[in-house]
């Protein structure tokens, strides 16, 4: 029984981890390549979730809704980049933080104006709403398994794009030496816009998949944003590999902490003390982890090259 529970919690941690990874991938690319701190990344997650609900309702098909939402988030990302963020690449990180925080407020209110402040209804597609018996006594929701699979596929795809394609080569080159890439006649501005839109679409995908299990409401992006920053900082900024590792570590630590910290503490100290300290410590665990990682490795676990 305990082994089954442990496997189930591992799957839960993995599922949380890949959701974080989808968010972290875009954020870390934008940071690593454009040297840009984008707090508004959480807003793209929210936009994705809202567009998916709206488009699913409009088309009546879940799949069409998801595709439209992805395209829509990509467009919103591209427009945001062209209108507001493009001029910020050369600026101080502080200016970027201030401007993108402004964008968070802007998008949250915009969503509230269009769809209202109440949480929207969004449901699982019929085909994915069941359970699957992985091994005896371990039934796991199909939808959550699908999230794990999609997340891992995206990781694989990203690895392929970055290491094996011309676009990936440009991305890597742009990260380490932007003047050189421009000198070679590459349109660096277009490259940046593509990367940003791509990152926004990935955040949108995370939002689309989160919609049916979480509450679709204004401000939903900020709840996850801080955790995503923790992920990319632990993993090492600018590194896709680091983002994946960081996401899985944070997902696992957080899930396992919530599940097993209190009983584990109870065995060490008195059960009443564990009752009080367990939940508090579980909430702090990922921040504690980040502080320890940074104290030992100030550049994160997998620092990107060229920095």
């Amino acid at each position: 029984m305990n082994a089954i529970l442990f496997v189930e919690q591992t799957l839960n941690g993995l599922q949380f981890g890949v959701t974080l990874f989808l968010m972290a991938a875009g954020l870390t690319l934008v940071f690593g390549i454009m040297n840009m701190v984008n707090l508004a990344h959480g807003a793209m997650y929210m936009v994705g979730a809202y567009l998916a609900v709206a488009a699913t309702q409009w088309t009546g098909s879940y799949l069409a809704g998801v595709l439209l939402a992805l395209v829509g988030t990509l467009l919103v990302g591209v427009v945001t980049e062209v209108v507001a963020l493009r001029t910020l690449y050369e600026r101080d990180h502080l200016d970027q933080v201030l401007a993108t925080f402004g964008l968070i407020l802007f998008f949250n209110e915009l969503v509230a104006i269009i769809w209202g402040r109440a949480a929207l209804f969004s449901d699982l597609p019929q085909a994915l709403s069941g359970h699957i018996e992985l091994v005896t006594n371990l039934r796991y929701p199909v939808y959550r398994l699908m999230i794990i699979i999609v997340g891992l596929l995206v990781a694989l795809l990203l690895w392929y794009v970055v290491t094996r394609t011309r676009l990936g080569m440009l991305i890597r080159a742009g990260a380490s030496n932007r003047t050189m890439v421009s000198a070679l006649g590459i349109n660096i501005r277009l490259l940046y816009t593509i990367v940003f839109g791509f990152g926004a679409a990935l955040a949108g995908l995370a939002g689309v998949m989160a919609g049916p299990i979480y509450a679709v409401q204004p401000g939903m992006g900020e709840l996850i944003l801080i955790q995503v920053f923790v992920v990319i900082v632990i993993g090492g900024i600018g590194s896709i590999r680091g983002a994946l590792a960081g996401a899985i570590i944070v997902g696992m630590v957080d899930t396992m902490g919530r599940a097993f910290l209190k009983p584990a503490l109870g065995a060490l100290i008195s059960p009443t003390a564990a009752e009080a300290a367990g939940p508090a410590l579980a909430s702090m665990l990922i921040y504690l982890l980040m502080a320890v990682v940074l104290a030992l490795r100030p550049e994160g676990l997998f620092p990107a090259r060229g920095h």
Binding site: Q9, N12, G13, I213, Y214, L223, I224, T255, R258, A259
Partner: peptide, 10 residues
């Protein structure tokens, strides 16, 4: 908190 899957498993 957003995700309760771990609590539900417990």
């Amino acid at each position: 908190q957003q995700d309760y899957q771990a609590e539900l498993s417990q």
